[in-house]
Design a protein around this nucleic acid. Structure first.
Ligand SMILES: [Mn+2]
Ligand SMILES: [Mn+2]
Ligand SMILES: [Zn+2]
Ligand SMILES: [Zn+2]
Lengths: 143, 143
DNA sequence: GTGCCAATCAACAAGTCATGTTGATTGCCA
DNA sequence: TGGCAATCAACATGACTTGTTGATTGGCAC
């Protein structure tokens, strides 16, 4: 996503009002690589703006998705997570702590065209599941 | 998953009763590569057993998951899909018709260990999205 | 065969997640 | 300064899945 300042400009240019609620969401997302849920964003915004409603947070997040500023990450568990990183990357989901990490897989994954002719691949999503370093340490056998 | 006959044996061996409802779900799943939802299974079972309840279908499907006989495929859209194929494979989701196809990706996808030390990968899930041959044909430019 | 008890049923309720609605109020910005 | 977009509270809706309860059925061990 763009910086909160750039988003402010873009919203104004589009005739959208730059409200404190929207700016609160901008800042809650900026530099946030935790793949937060809408509720997590809500909690962060409420720290400085206790009266903001969850409904509005959802609204702003969906506006940002429609503008292509952020992405939605659906990992099959519970709620949608929001990702200010829209560059191509993959995800690692820890089964211990539930955290989602950005990763970059080595190989370019492709469908073998000879086996799947006429399949038009437009997007590829890779999800690794396992234990993150912190959670692996906990249950690791002590030497 | 095992054949309906083998499942019958396994259920009996576990002290579970082999009811017509359970056998109906067994047969609805056997050889079914359409990644059906619970409702789709329900529809198929009701063809020969009109009184079966959706609640029971859900129950049997979850029992089969607990026994490791089938898998649950969550693709971020609407409802859970059930997969009698539990061998390692990937999926292609068509944005045209919504169908889910089994595919096998070529490259062995890995996390580069030098970049992600101590990450313990236990499972890798690859989802391709695009258009299946049938849907690609529809909007293809006629020659 | 008989009988126990698991399984199923109908009919609800509940819970989660996300969005729609409405009418009043606020406040951004031309 | 004023128009109107945005937000608010409060509630409803909707899809999907599971829980519950009390009654009924029927599989299967004996
Ligand atoms: Mn990410
Ligand atoms: Mn499959
Ligand atoms: Zn972890
Ligand atoms: Zn298709």
């Amino acid at each position: 996503m763009r910086t909160p300042e750039e988003l402010t400009e873009r919203f104004r240019a589009l005739g959208l009002k730059v409200t404190p609620q929207r700016q609160g969401v901008f800042h809650a997302l900026w530099g946030n690589d935790s793949h937060p849920t809408a509720e997590a964003i809500w909690d962060r915004v409420r720290e400085t703006m206790p009266t903001v409603s969850l409904r509005t947070v959802y609204q702003v997040l969906n506006d940002l998705i429609d503008l292509g500023e952020i992405g939605a990450v659906r990992l099959g568990t519970s709620s949608v997570r929001f990702d200010p990183n829209i560059d191509g990357h993959d995800h690692f989901v820890c089964r211990g702590c539930g955290r989602v990490h950005d990763v970059h897989a080595t190989a370019m994954v492709e469908l073998p065209a000879d086996h799947y002719p006429d399949f038009e691949v437009e997007a590829t999503q890779i999800v690794f599941r396992g234990r993150c370093p912190a959670c692996a340490r906990i249950t690791a056998v002590p030497s």
